[in-house]
Design a protein around this nucleic acid. Structure first.
Lengths: 336, 336
DNA sequence: CGAACAAATGCACTTGTGTGCAAGCGCCTT
DNA sequence: AAGGCGCTTGCACACAAGTGCATTTGTTCG
C-alpha cells in the first residue's frame, strides 16, 4: 500500500515513519554497523511499507560508485554481444553495475564516451572497441579511474591491457592449412585496421612466406558477413584461386563460405579449407562447422574483475590469454 | 599536465585554481546560467588543465539522474543484441545513459534487477526480458520512475507497454504457407512460455483449424538454434511430417532448416516451406534466405524515447507496432 | 544498590553539485 | 551627479547518503 509519493523515498521519510533518527536507518542498511534488533526491525518494516531503496548515487559521493563503464561498438556482432554478456554477468556477481556506452570506433566517439565515464564517476572503464587517445587515458588515471583495454593496441601506457595471443592463432591457422595440403593460400581481412586483425594477418603472412607459400590478401569492407561474401566473389573471380584461406574473423569466414559454396559450387573442405577466429555461435551451426579459435571470454572477464578488485597492482599490465583451437570440419584433417 | 590527484577533480578545486567561487564553476557548466565571459574563460581553462568533469551522480541528487536501466536476458541472442544496440543509441542521442542489468527470466532475478534500478535512481526502466511482479512495478511508479515493458504480457497495469502485433504475424504466416500449397502444417515453438511466443502460436493454430488445416505443435527446448534443430529431428522422425512450418523465432527456424536439409535431405522451399519471426541478421544469409517478419526496432526504440521524454501521458499506455513481412525464398511463391 | 562497561543512538560534518536570494558592481539616463 | 537598472557573484541551503564522536541507555557484576 505505498502512498503516492511520485518521488523517490528517502531515508529521512523512513526514519520519520519508524520513529527513529536518520542515522539509524542508514546503519540498518550498512553491514557491520551497530543497531539494536528492535530498531532494525522497525526500520525494515517502515522501509518495506514505503518502498524505500538506498540511493546508490548519494552513497557514491563518499565512496566508490561501483559503476563500471563498457565502451563498445558493433554491439550486434555476435562476439561483441557475448563479450558484453559475459562481462555484465561477472561484474554483477562482483557487486558492480554496468553502464554501456555504444560508440563508433573513431577517436572522437571514443573520447566522448570516456568523458561520460568520468562524469558518472565510474570506478573503471573497459574499452572493447576503438582506441582512446593516450591523453584521455591519462586523465582517467589521474582521476583515480582504472582503464582496461581488451584486444586493443598494447602500446598504450598506463592502462591495463588484456588480449588474446593473435600471433599463435596466425601460426596455428597456417599450420592447419598446410597440413591439409593447401598450396595456394588466401587471407581474408577487413579494412578496419584493428591491432588484433593486423597482427593475425601479419603473423600468418610472414609465417607463410617463411614456409615458401604464396598468400594473397583480400579486404573487401568492414568486419562483417557481407565483406566475407564480397571477398569470395573477388577471390574466385580471378585465376589462381586459393584452396585454403584464413579469415581473421568468423563472420568474414561464414560469408566467404556461403558464396564459395553457393555461387561457385565449391565443396568444403574437399575443394577449399577455411579457418576462422572467434568461435561465434554460428560457427558451430550445421551449415558451417567452421574450424576456428575460441576467445576464452569467461577467463578474460574474470581477469577484468580481478583487476578491478585489486586497483593497486593494475598499473600498466599486459595479460595475454591463449585462444583455444576448435577443430570442426571446414579443414581437411592431416594425413596419418 | 594533470597533477597526480588520484581522486576525482571537484568543482571546488577548479574554483580555487581559477580564483573564483565554486558557484561560478557550477554556472559555467550549466547552460542558461549567468556568467561573465571573462570568468567563464578562466574557469574553462582551469577545468581543462585539471581534467575536471561534472559529477553527474551529485547532480542526480537534485534533479533527474538521466539514467535509464535496461533489464535483459539472453543478451547473446541476435535479436536481443540488436534491441540493446538500437536502444542504447537512441537513448544516448536523447542525453540519457544506459545501465544494463543482465538477468535470468525468472521472477526473482527480474525483481532484484528492478530493485537495482531503484537503487540507482534511474529515471526509467525498460524491461526486455522476463516479467516483473506487478507489486514491484507499483513500487517503481510510486517512486516516480517510469516502467516500459517491451513485448511482455500486456495485462500488467501501470506501466507503458510496447509490442509487435503477434496476431498479425500468426495469421500472415498461415496465409503464406497455405498459398504455397502446404497442407500438413507444423508450428515450432520453445518451452519458454513468453506472452509473445504463446500469442503467435495461438493465433496460427486457431486460424489454421478455422481454415480446416491440421497443425502439429512441437517444442523441444529453450528459444535457440539447438531447439529448432532438435524439433526437426522429432518432426521428421515421425510419419506424416509437415510440408510447411511456422517457427515462432528465426533462431528456431534456422536450426530447423539446417537439420531438415542436412540430416533429412529436404529441399527448401520445394519439399518444405519455413516462416520465421524477428528477421535477425542470419536470416538473410545466403544459406538460409528465410522468409520472416521484421520487428521494427528503430521505431520501437524511438517510441520508448518518446515515452521517456513525456513522463505525464505515459500512464498505462499500450502501443502496438506492425511487424514487417520480409519475403525471401524459404517459402514457395503463390501461384499466379 | 551503585559502579563500570558495552551497546545503541543522535548530532553534526562530509561528499559534489545546482540554485534562490541578496549584495556588489558598473553603466546609462534624466 | 545621483538614482536606477541589469548583469555578476558569492553565500548558504538542499539533495541523500555514511560515519566519528559524544551522549544516552541498558546490563551485569561486585
Amino acid at each position: 500500500m505505498g502512498t503516492k509519493t511520485r518521488t523517490f523515498v528517502t531515508a529521512h521519510m523512513v526514519a520519520e515513519r519508524a520513529g527513529v533518527s536518520r542515522s539509524a536507518v542508514s546503519r540498518t542498511f550498512t553491514s557491520g554497523a551497530s543497531v539494536s534488533e528492535a530498531t532494525r526491525k522497525k526500520v525494515l518494516e517502515a522501509a518495506a511499507s514505503l518502498g524505500y531503496h538506498v540511493n546508490h548515487l548519494a552513497r557514491g559521493l563518499r565512496e566508490r560508485s561501483n559503476i563500471v563503464c563498457l565502451v563498445v561498438a558493433d554491439l550486434t556482432t555476435p562476439i561483441r554481444a557475448r563479450m558484453v554478456d559475459v562481462l555484465t554477468r561477472k561484474l554483477q556477481a562482483a557487486g558492480k553495475i554496468t553502464m554501456v556506452i555504444n560508440t563508433e570506433t573513431d577517436t572522437e566517439s571514443v573520447s566522448s564516451a570516456l568523458r561520460q565515464t568520468l562524469n558518472y564517476r565510474a570506478d573503471a572503464t573497459v574499452v572493447l572497441s576503438g582506441t582512446p587517445p593516450a591523453s584521455l587515458i591519462e586523465t582517467c588515471l589521474a582521476n583515480g579511474q582504472q582503464v582496461v583495454l581488451i584486444n586493443r593496441d598494447d602500446r598504450l601506457s598506463g592502462s591495463s591491457n588484456l588480449g588474446v595471443d593473435n600471433a599463435m592463432a596466425g601460426r596455428e591457422a597456417l599450420f592447419l592449412l598446410l597440413r591439409a595440403g593447401c598450396r595456394r593460400l588466401g587471407l581474408i581481412t577487413s579494412n578496419a585496421r584493428t591491432a588484433s586483425l593486423v597482427e593475425r594477418e601479419r603473423v600468418f603472412v610472414e609465417a607463410a612466406t617463411a614456409a615458401g607459400a604464396a598468400v594473397t590478401v583480400t579486404a573487401a569492407g568492414p568486419t562483417s558477413y557481407a565483406s566475407g561474401a564480397e571477398a569470395a566473389r573477388r577471390v574466385f573471380g580471378r585465376s589462381n584461386a586459393p584452396d585454403g584461406v584464413f579469415c581473421v574473423t568468423d563472420l568474414l569466414a561464414l560469408g566467404f563460405m556461403d558464396v564459395a559454396r553457393i555461387e561457385f559450387g565449391l565443396k568444403i573442405p574437399q575443394d577449399l579449407c577455411v579457418v576462422g577466429f572467434d568461435d561465434i555461435e554460428q560457427a558451430a551451426w550445421h551449415s558451417y562447422q567452421l574450424t576456428t579459435f575460441a576467445q576464452p571470454l569467461e577467463a578474460m572477464a574474470s581477469e577484468v574483475v580481478d583487476l578491478l578488485l585489486r586497483p593497486e597492482i593494475s598499473a600498466t599490465t599486459r595479460q595475454i590469454v591463449e585462444p583455444l583451437p576448435v577443430w570442426r570440419s571446414s579443414v581437411r584433417p592431416g594425413k596419418g
